[in-house]
C-alpha cells in the first residue's frame, strides 16, 4: 500500500521534490502539498483503493504525511473487508 500511496502522491501531489526523498513521517504540507492538491490526491486514493473517505477524515491532518495517509486508507480498506 505504501508504494501505491507514494505513486499517487508523485502523480497528484504537485510536489517540487521527489517522493522518494520523503520519509513516511515527513510533513507533506511543508514539502509543498497544497490544499487543492490534497483534494486531488484524496479522489485518486478513493479510486485506487475503492474506498470513500468519511466526513471525519476530510481534514488537513489525514493527508499530512505518507504514514497518515496509509493509516487512513488502511482503516477504510479493513472496514470495507469486514463489511
Amino acid at each position: 500500500m505504501n508504494s501505491t500511496v507514494r505513486g499517487l502522491i508523485a502523480k497528484h501531489g504537485g510536489l517540487p521534490v521527489s517522493v522518494e526523498t520523503l520519509a513516511d513521517d515527513a510533513d507533506l504540507y511543508e514539502a509543498g502539498l497544497s490544499s487543492f492538491a490534497s483534494v486531488q490526491l484524496m479522489l485518486a486514493l478513493e479510486d485506487a483503493f475503492d474506498v470513500e473517505f468519511p466526513e471525519n477524515l476530510l481534514n488537513r491532518k489525514s493527508f499530512a504525511s505518507i504514514a497518515a495517509i496509509t493509516a487512513a486508507v488502511g482503516s477504510l480498506v479493513s472496514d470495507a473487508q469486514v463489511a
Partner: peptide
C-alpha cells in the same frame, strides 16, 4: 462538496 470539507478545514487551520 466533500473535497470542500478538506479545503475548509485547512483554511481554518
Amino acid at each position: 462538496g466533500r473535497a470542500g470539507k478538506i479545503m475548509g478545514s485547512s483554511q481554518r487551520e
